[in-house]
Amino acid sequence: MTYAVELKDVSVKYGKIPALKNVSIQIAEGAFLGIIGPNGGGKTTLLKVILGLIEPEAGEINVFGHPHNQMVDRIGYVPQISNFDRDFPISVLDVVLMARLGGRVRFFHQYQKEDLKKAEAVLDQLNLLHLKDRQIGKLSGGQLQRVLIARGLAVEPEILLLDEPTANVDASSTSQIYELLKNLNQDRTIIVATHDMAAVSSYFDTLACLNEKLYHHGDKRLDQETTEQVFGCPVDLIAHGHPHHVFAPHGEEENND
């Protein structure tokens, strides 16, 4: 079987500090995978390993059965929103078009008509076309996150990686973003690194629980032992906005609401 992404015994260190320890995971085509775990647990590192931005000290990474460094053009990436100069004079359309450069940064670059057509089509798909000329610093947090998703989609990826896509948006925007991702998942594999425990049962098909080591991969229902291993303390998961356990107690099956 060919997987969208497969990692075999991957380890990463920053200096002498371990970030990933012998991580192995097989991600099926069409999966909607949530990677959860504490801050500093290796979620971002795992995404960057798949992208080829970080070279592991050990292990193997394949994308659609080929070495991942041969398949980067089939992967889109949405980074976590970080501090940026909100006065920088760049429009929404220009941000999305940057993805079409393919890593080749050129001064006074002239985009092809096909680039403009694709960028505008993606903005239209995400209901952002009316904002294409707006300066990026004038957007709300939810609008900005959707623009970054549009940029990730502009390369027409078969796999979309997202790092904390709802970290800086309100609850309403969070729901809209996850509904958007669920819709996009109909024709691509989506992998989301998140600390948003409320999304676990509501949106993801499968989960990976990561804290340097991979403690769980598969069923989105977790038991308390696994969550304590990953987070170091008991964790209550929240489903559909209601505070209740969604992991099964030891020896018992989950009761459906």
Rank of each mutant, 00 (worst) to 15 (best):
E6V: 08
V10A: 00
G15L: 09
K16C: 07
A19G: 02
A19F: 03
N22A: 11
I25V: 13
A28L: 10
G37H: 00
G37T: 02
G41R: 01
T45E: 08
I61A: 01
Q70Y: 06
V72K: 01
I75F: 05
G76E: 02
Q80W: 07
D87C: 01
D94C: 07
V95T: 08
V95C: 10
V96P: 05
L97T: 00
M98P: 02
A99G: 11
G102F: 05
R104N: 09
F107T: 12
F108I: 13
H109M: 07
Q110D: 12
Y111M: 10
K113M: 13
K113T: 14
K113S: 11
E114F: 08
A121L: 11
V122C: 04
L123H: 06
N127K: 12
R134F: 04
I136P: 01
V147M: 01
I149R: 03
I149L: 04
I149A: 00
E156F: 09
P157F: 04
L161I: 01
L162W: 01
S172H: 11
S173N: 12
S175N: 12
Y178D: 06
I191W: 12
D196Y: 04
D196V: 07
D196N: 10
A198E: 10
A199I: 12
D205M: 03
N211E: 06
L214C: 00
Y215A: 02
H216E: 10
G218V: 11
K220R: 15
R221W: 11
L222K: 04
D223K: 10
Q224P: 03
G241H: 01
H242M: 14
F247T: 09
G251S: 10
G251C: 09
E254T: 11
E254P: 08
D257A: 15
D257F: 15
